[in-house]
C-alpha cells in the first residue's frame, strides 16, 4: 500500500514535470532560434500577405515569441528548400491544405480559405517537418 502510494506520487511528479517544461521540443530547435530574435516568413505572393487572417496570425506568432517579423519573397520551390534547411521558419500566402508539398512540410491548423478552381480550399501555414514545439506555437497563434 505504502509502495503503491509512493509509485503514484512518483508518477504524478513525473507527469507534472513533463507538462511543466516546454514539451514537445523541436529536433532542429526552431522555437529557440526564433524566440527573442527574428521570425522569417517566406511567401510567393504579395508582402505582407493580403489575407487578413494570415497576417494577424503571423503578427501574433511573432509577438508570442518576442520576435521581429520579417518577410522573404521568392518562388515556391526556392522557399520549399529554404524551409527544409531552416533558412525561413514559416511558409505562408494562401497555401492550400492539400498542397503537393504536404509530405515535405509540417502543416498548421487551417488559417483561412481560398477559391481554387471554383472549390473552397482551407489554407494552412507550412513549417519545417518534425518541429512539433514550433508547430504548437503556430497553431496557438492561428487559433487565437
Amino acid at each position: 500500500m505504502a509502495y503503491s502510494l509512493r509509485y503514484a506520487s512518483a508518477i504524478f511528479f513525473c507527469l507534472s514535470a513533463l507538462l511543466g517544461c516546454e514539451l514537445p521540443k523541436d529536433p532542429s530547435r526552431t522555437s529557440q532560434t526564433v524566440r527573442g530574435d527574428v521570425l522569417i516568413v517566406g511567401t510567393d505572393g504579395p508582402v505582407p500577405p493580403e489575407n487578413e487572417a494570415e497576417k494577424a496570425a503571423l503578427t501574433r506568432l511573432a509577438a508570442n515569441l518576442n520576435a521581429r517579423l520579417e518577410y522573404r519573397q521568392a518562388g515556391i520551390h526556392a522557399l520549399a528548400a529554404d524551409l527544409e534547411s531552416g533558412e525561413i521558419h514559416v511558409l505562408a500566402g494562401g497555401l492550400p491544405r492539400n498542397t503537393p508539398f504536404k509530405n515535405r512540410f509540417g502543416l498548421s491548423s487551417p488559417v483561412s480559405e481560398v477559391l481554387l478552381d471554383g472549390k473552397r480550399e482551407k489554407t494552412v501555414f507550412a513549417i519545417r517537418k518534425g518541429e512539433n514545439g514550433f508547430l504548437l506555437q503556430v497553431n496557438k497563434a492561428v487559433g487565437d
Binding site: 514537445p24 529536433p27 512540410f105 509540417g106 502543416l107 498548421s108 491548423s109 519545417r128 517537418k129 518534425g130 518541429e131 512539433n132 508547430l135 504548437l136 497553431n139 496557438k140 487559433g143
Partner: peptide, 13 residues
Amino acid sequence: HPTIGSVQILGRD
C-alpha cells in the same frame, strides 16, 4: 521527422 499537430479542446491547444 514525424510531425504531430494539435487540437483545440475547451479553448486550449
